[in-house]
Amino acid sequence: MSAAPAGWWRRHGASVALACVTLAVGLTLGLTAPTTSPVDVPWPAPSGAAPATHRGP
């Protein structure tokens, strides 16, 4: 490896590693998050209309 890339990695290697870890953690958390909410409930429909599924608080 030439001197310039070695210098670049010495200065920015930790930042790149941290960015990779951040990306991995963010993706893992997002992709393993719950797919349904505990508060998915039938929403009371306006009078006369058929009940529709909606999300609560």
Binding site: T22, L23, V25, G26, L27, T28, L29, G30, L31, A33, P34, T35, T36, S37, P38, V39, D40, R55, G56, P57
Partner: peptide, 20 residues
């Protein structure tokens, strides 16, 4: 786990990346 994010994969990943 809340109703605004749960089940919306793209939003959950974006939100997680924001926090991370």
């Amino acid at each position: 786990a809340g109703p605004d994010l749960a089940g919306r994969r793209v939003v959950q990943v974006g939100w997680s990346l924001l926090y991370a």
